[in-house]
Amino acid sequence: MARKAKAEKKNVAVIGLGRFGEAVALRLNDLGHEVVCIDESLDIVQHLADALPHVVQADSTDAEALRALGVNEVDYAVVAIGASLEGSVLSVLALQELGIAEIWAKASTRQHGLILERLGVSKVVYPEADMGKALAEQLCGA
């Protein structure tokens, strides 16, 4: 029987460490990927310092701050900022300024998602809606 090929190790930046961003970062780390995690809150950074090897407090809307953290070298970036439309959009722009081609971003509303799409993010995710649909399909065997 053929063995499943092991996934290639990726370098990923996760920006915004609320419930969604934290879950993404922890799972990527568990899967063996190199993850740099960024949040503006020192409390959140300190809370996750033991669980994640590269977690820092920084302004994710500042391209030079991201460059100093090596974010310009990542394969993927996940913008998990949902509470601040401005922070989300400006973080995407900063990542684009660094030349990050593969950006996935969380949207909290349909309008937020449309803005992210028009900015050219690779994938817009709606965590609550996506999980709700998946759960409904699991319940009904769809």
Score class of each variant (00 low, 15 high):
A2Y: 03
K4C: 00
A5W: 02
K6L: 05
A7T: 08
A7L: 13
A7K: 15
E8P: 08
E8Q: 13
K9V: 14
K9A: 09
K9R: 15
V12K: 05
V14M: 08
V14L: 05
G16K: 10
G16D: 10
L17H: 03
L17F: 08
G18R: 11
R19N: 12
G21L: 04
G21R: 10
E22P: 03
A23H: 01
V24H: 04
A25D: 09
R27E: 15
L28T: 05
N29E: 08
N29L: 02
D30T: 02
D30P: 00
L31Y: 10
L31R: 14
G32N: 08
H33C: 07
V36K: 13
V36T: 14
E40V: 11
L42N: 11
D43V: 01
D43R: 13
I44L: 11
I44K: 15
H47G: 01
H47R: 15
L48I: 07
A49C: 06
A49P: 01
D50L: 11
L52W: 08
P53T: 07
P53D: 06
P53A: 01
H54V: 00
H54G: 00
V55I: 13
V56T: 09
D59H: 12
D59C: 03
D59Q: 12
D59E: 13
S60Y: 05
S60W: 04
S60C: 04
A63W: 00
E64D: 14
E64I: 05
E64Y: 03
R67C: 02
A68G: 08
A68R: 14
A68M: 06
V71R: 10
V71Q: 04
V71G: 05
N72W: 01
N72P: 01
E73F: 00
V74P: 02
D75A: 03
Y76D: 04
A77D: 04
V78Y: 12
A80C: 06
A80P: 11
G82E: 07
A83F: 04
A83V: 01
S84Y: 12
L85Y: 11
E86T: 13
G87L: 07
G87Q: 09
V89C: 05
V89D: 12
S91I: 01
S91M: 05
S91V: 01
V92C: 12
L93S: 07
A94G: 06
L95A: 07
Q96C: 04
L98V: 03
L98D: 02
A101V: 09
A101E: 15
A101G: 06
E102H: 14
E102C: 02
I103C: 03
I103Q: 10
W104V: 15
W104S: 10
K106P: 04
S108N: 12
R110N: 06
R110V: 06
H112Y: 06
G113I: 04
G113F: 02
L114K: 14
I115N: 10
L116G: 09
R118Y: 07
R118A: 12
R118E: 13
R118H: 14
G120H: 09
S122N: 07
S122G: 04
K123T: 13
K123I: 01
V125I: 15
V125Q: 09
V125D: 08
P127D: 06
E128R: 10
A129P: 00
G132E: 06
K133H: 09
K133T: 04
A134V: 05
L135E: 02
L135V: 15
Q138S: 08
Q138C: 03
C140D: 06
C140T: 13
G141A: 10
